[in-house]
């Protein structure tokens, strides 16, 4: 089958869509490259791909007609979503095994993007449970766990609300860290439990930039050093935002 320019253009748009979705959902650079390559291979195209943290550049080449299209797409700013990473990875195998067409792939992507998140209350309470688990790992007991739970719950709530109001992501993290440490700092001030300091330290840990930091290292040893550095700095700025929130609460309570 001879591919028209329209076919190549469709493939280009779909591949860029897949790549940017993966990138913004928290996949490492190597995974984005292999997945996009895999789908392009299955459709019979040669591609060249440039991946940066905020945009992707893709050149799709059709060997038969010797035509190519190159274009650029910005990655969308929504956060980590492993359901999309796992869904696209599964889909890329099906594309090979079941010879999917481009409209079929586009439909699957639409379905994956529309998949619901966990209910808000479930997210809030399970992350709060993670906060009290951190407190327990540091050696906290009883009432300190409760303090960590409540502070984390409140902090994450503030973060979600400030993201909804479209604040800068780092500012949202600062707000969340400040809110959580205000609550847990209050318990330090009032002397709740034996070592309220543990709850104070644990209450902001739900904000730690785990995905950027681990992906940073994965990228670097994979040879994508520039992307690794960018992700590392991103994680560092998040860490600074957390520290700033803690600092403000500490100065307010003078602890």
């Amino acid at each position: 089958m001879i591919k028209t320019l329209k076919d190549i253009r469709e493939a280009e748009a779909m591949l860029l869509n897949v790549g940017t979705l993966l990138m913004s959902s928290g996949a490492s650079t190597g995974r984005v490259r292999t997945t996009v390559n895999r789908i392009a291979d299955a459709l019979g195209y040669n591609i060249e791909l440039l991946i940066t943290n905020r945009s992707l550049m893709l050149k799709v080449i059709d060997e038969e007609s010797d035509r190519f299209i190159a274009s650029l797409k910005r990655t969308s700013p929504h956060g980590v979503n492993f359901r999309i990473v796992s869904g696209i990875s599964r889909m890329s195998w099906k594309v090979i095994e079941e010879n999917w067409s481009i409209p079929q792939i586009n439909r699957e992507i639409e379905r994956l993007v529309a998949l619901p998140h966990y209910p808000r209350l479930v997210i809030l309470s399970s992350v709060a449970l993670a906060g009290s688990s951190f407190c327990a790992l540091f050696g906290g007991k009883g009432i300190e766990l409760v303090v960590a739970f409540v502070a984390t719950f409140f902090g994450l709530f503030i973060r979600q609300e400030s993201l909804k109001k479209r604040f800068n992501p780092f500012v949202s993290i600062f707000f969340a860290s400040f809110a959580a440490s205000l609550l847990s700092g209050l318990s330090v001030k009032l002397g709740v439990g034996k070592s309220p300091d543990l709850a104070f330290a644990a209450s902001v840990l739900f904000l730690i930039p785990g995905v950027p930091l681990i992906n940073s290292f994965t990228d670097m040893i994979d040879g994508n050093i520039l992307n690794g550095i960018v992700r590392g700095i991103h994680g560092l700025i998040i860490a600074f935002a957390i520290a700033l929130g803690l600092l403000c609460a500490k100065f307010l309570f003078n602890i």
Partner: peptide, 10 residues
């Protein structure tokens, strides 16, 4: 588990 749910795993 808390972080898994935050990251919206399947």
């Amino acid at each position: 588990l808390g972080f898994a749910i935050l990251f919206n795993v399947p």
